[in-house]
Design a protein around this nucleic acid. Structure first.
Lengths: 155, 155
DNA sequence: TGACCAACCATAAAAAACCATGATATCCCA
DNA sequence: TGGGATATCATGGTTTTTTATGGTTGGTCA
């Protein structure tokens, strides 16, 4: 499955188009849909994206953990899957960010793509700077408790 | 997975390119990405590198230990994965060290690659000399108190 | 008809490939 | 064992390609 790393900031033009970073385009190049899938996460003012198989897997996971007609599961499915959009690349590798997404994420002229492994986030560039500061503090407290980071690189 | 040993110092040219030591290139030769992956560790003024499967494994471990939307997990993912870069080899075996990394690690004209097993570190050459002194002292005090293989499996 | 959207065209800047060279290290054979 | 031939490596500069970005055109559909 696609794997996303690193952070890139690009411009949104007045028609709502943004270049998807070339590294992310390559990551989804093997997907059967020439573009990315975007949805509004439940608890953050940003957009999340991935290749389509990520949402397929998320769906399977929801329907596995709960029954196929569980009420809580349906609410998550409605929020995530129902709110998702398939964003197709134009010939130059851009996508159209729907107005609704831009409003919900407070996206102005510049957006930041943040690779997070199997998925990535799209933030308003200024909002991301604030978010990142908070996340770095939280990560510094959290990481020592996670096995891969014990002793954090000081050998 | 790749294994890195020993220490090498190379020059950074004015375009930000550095030769990755041949031994490290060989170590990642079987990886599906022709290059290394670099990220800023949380508590040291240097860059850490590894082959891509190291971060893939880390990512999948994070998303496995916690749910896909856990807050603490996301903070580590943001710090490490969002701050990471895939550095591809050029035909001569060099990589471009992004400006942000060079600044955060205080990298000037010379960098030192330090093999640490599953990962390696990239230091400004002068900064590493100081760091090494401190680490050697600390190791000399600490080692007698450690049972021979305590911590052996942790990177 | 007018708003919207998808392809097309153009351009500057950044990144990747390309080519060249000196310095080591390695091999091979007399 | 010595020494020349050969390969590898680190390094520097130049050229080509890719990327991000902006605008324009033509079609579609309400």
């Amino acid at each position: 499955m696609a794997f996303f790393l690193s952070t890139f900031t690009n411009k949104v033009d007045k028609k709502g188009r943004v270049s998807v970073p070339a590294a992310f385009r390559n990551a989804v190049a093997n997907s059967h849909f020439p573009g990315v899938v975007a949805y509004k996460p439940l608890n953050l003012p940003c957009i999340e994206g991935a290749d389509i198989s990520f949402l397929e897997q998320l769906s399977d996971q929801l329907y596995g953990d709960f029954g196929p007609f569980d009420e809580e599961q349906m609410s998550v499915a409605t929020a995530i899957l129902g709110g998702a959009s398939q964003l197709a690349f134009d010939p130059e590798g851009r996508v159209m960010l729907p107005l609704g997404f831009r409003e919900e994420a407070g996206i102005e002229a510049h957006v930041t793509f943040v690779g997070l492994g199997r998925k990535f986030q799209i933030w308003d560039a200024a909002a991301y700077e604030l978010h990142k500061e908070k996340q770095l503090k939280l990560a510094a407290e959290t990481a020592p408790r996670l096995s891969p980071f014990k002793g954090g690189g000081q050998q």
